[in-house]
Design a protein around this nucleic acid. Structure first.
Lengths: 337, 337
DNA sequence: CCGCATTATGACACCGGTGTCAGGGTTGGA
DNA sequence: TCCAACCCTGACACCGGTGTCATAATGCGG
């Protein structure tokens, strides 16, 4: 198998390599006849341009980096799926880069990543999407970036999110409509902006329906299963016991369910449990969790698509979109008795 | 921020760029004085070589591809973690590439991937690790590859696995020692070599302990939660009902647990359930699943490390290692009553 | 049919490194 | 003391594309 380069194509087609390059890039000012001739040779020789050489000449890598520090493997996988879809459509590659938000080396870590991999752009996923230090750093370095599931919208960037506040409102309202009044809430990780958003939605639903907010019903979690266990313990020990628990994500909700089951409570008869995210576990356990589904793949795909457009044409407008979240009711919530 | 290239380093240090290149690559035949001088300039100018230019000159991309078609997100994440660790240590990048094993376009899909991304090597994860068509293709194209968790060892390749057969043996034996004699078995996806291995271990444990193999206790699954539900239904309908179920992975085991719970069976009092893989769900449900833990990250890391070594030096020896799996007992298995 | 604007094409340098090879300086053995 | 062998070093071509610019070919109005 001989290597097929632009030179072989050029000589085979009887044109200069610059002309071949023009055809490759769909540039104007190539006669139809020449274009067709070259395209035919592409097929005949089964030519694929070398992205590395291209990258060198254009000072690009055709690689997008995806930064994350997220305990939920299913979330990460969904993010990757969406990002990959966008990359494949645009002949880009995706580089994944897990890292510590809290590590003091974060910025230098990212700086090194950018230097050594020459990424064309970065996708920030929670909790980085709203991490000001990082965003400011990227801005100052003029590194193109897109944010997924950020809470704060800015005017001059690419950001695709879903409505966490509204989702939390709806699921809380769902519980209220089932007759629940004492609804415990488990917060997420403080570094994630979703934590605050979901809490807001919970409170808004309460006040909309004239239920007084009770601080004692709120527990601090961090999105991990383990933190859910701790919070669940406190909540189940309360007197009077709340009739429902809304955990900020499904892992913590699963923890509540596990502890409740261990203590011989019937879910949802004795206590209703709701989660958030529609993680796989929500339907893998019994009873299945009532939860909120977000279009994670779609968010990420849009963000990456726009990011790639922006890299190709930096004049591109900012892009700010909010997609809808959806309530999914399963067996873990029921009418209060 | 001006760009720092090899040229600027060279002129700043007062040497030729070839000498700088020598220092970069730790080549011999550079005087200590010169080497130190150049290294100092590296620091002063904060120079990072451009991997793209390097790649062009050496016809390498410094990118490893990771191929998978696996329903378990946690497994994929673990694979990625291990692969990334190896890549980072060696200044390589990881490109992830999910694809369909069964798609008839698989080979051309991979071929296109290789052509267009110029990967230096490929990591095959289950079910690709034992997919002969693909392995033969890579061999014929002389693409370096490493296999993770393959069942079959070959003499001339890199392969790191864990002992599925032994793991299945141990967990079955664990059930037998608890007094179980009627142990149902749910098979995995037929495309995965682990499926056969785990089945073998199950049968070996039975025969070792003088329990007759009963075909009616074996259900065909495919590693998915959903297939677990179907299998569970058949198993729970059997008369007499088996006292234990060993599912080939944790998702299917979780499905058995869910269905059993729905039907008001007590686990483990009425029926013991065991899984395989130690997926997160195994400890997120109640009762926690007895299962087998495999060192997935470690396997992948070793495989990728060896793969990169092999790319750097194709004379490198083959590498075939089997790591141990470990029994983890939780609450889902108990003495038969 | 001429002059000018426009289109089509190629020559050549360049992106930032590495491979090859030649030449000058040292070292060491005869 | 002389020459071979070896160590350092740099000039230069090259990897496979793209950008710039000059030039040839074509179109078109007058």
């Amino acid at each position: 198998m001989k290597k097929v380069t632009i030179n072989s194509v050029a000589s085979y087609a009887g044109v200069s390599k610059k002309t071949v390059s023009r055809v490759l890039n769909n540039e104007p000012n190539v006669s139809d006849a020449t274009r067709e001739k070259v395209l035919k040779v592409f097929k005949e020789l089964d030519y694929t341009p070398n992205p590395i050489a291209r990258g060198l000449a254009q000072n690009r890598s055709f690689i997008i980096g995806c930064i994350y520090d997220n305990p939920s493997k299913s979330y990460i996988t969904r993010v990757q799926t969406g990002a990959l879809a966008a990359c494949q459509e645009n002949n880009y590659n995706l580089l994944i880069h897990p890292c510590d938000l809290r590590g003091d080396a974060l910025i230098s870590n990212i700086e090194h990543l950018l230097q050594s991999s020459r990424l064309d752009g970065l996708v920030l996923t929670p909790p980085f999407s709203d991490f000001k230090v990082l965003v400011d750093f990227l801005k100052s370095k003029k590194i193109p970036y897109a944010r997924v599931a950020s809470a704060v919208l800015e005017d001059d960037s690419i950001s695709v999110r879903s409505n966490d506040e509204q989702g939390a409102f709806e699921i809380t309202e769902h519980l209220i409509k089932l007759g629940h009044k004492a609804i415990a809430f488990i917060k997420g990780h403080p570094d994630h902006s979703a934590t605050e958003q979901r809490f807001k939605g919970y409170r808004r639903a309460l006040s909309t329906h004239g239920i007084e907010f009770n601080e004692r019903l709120v527990e601090e979690g961090n999105f991990s299963y383990h933190s859910g266990v701790d919070s669940a313990r406190s909540i189940l020990d309360l007197t009077p016991r709340p009739t429902a628990v809304f955990a900020s994500n499904d892992y913590m909700a699963a923890a509540v369910l596990k502890l409740a089951t261990q203590r011989q409570f019937k879910v949802p008869d004795d206590i209703s449990i709701a989660g958030f995210d529609n993680a796989p576990i929500a339907r893998h356990i019994w009873p299945g969790l009532t939860t909120i589904a977000q279009p994670v793949e779609e968010m990420t795909k849009q963000a990456v698509t726009k990011l790639i457009e922006h890299i190709g044409d930096p004049q591109e407008q900012p892009y700010q979109v909010t997609l809808e979240a959806r309530l999914i009711t399963r067996e873990s919530t029921a009418q209060v008795r």
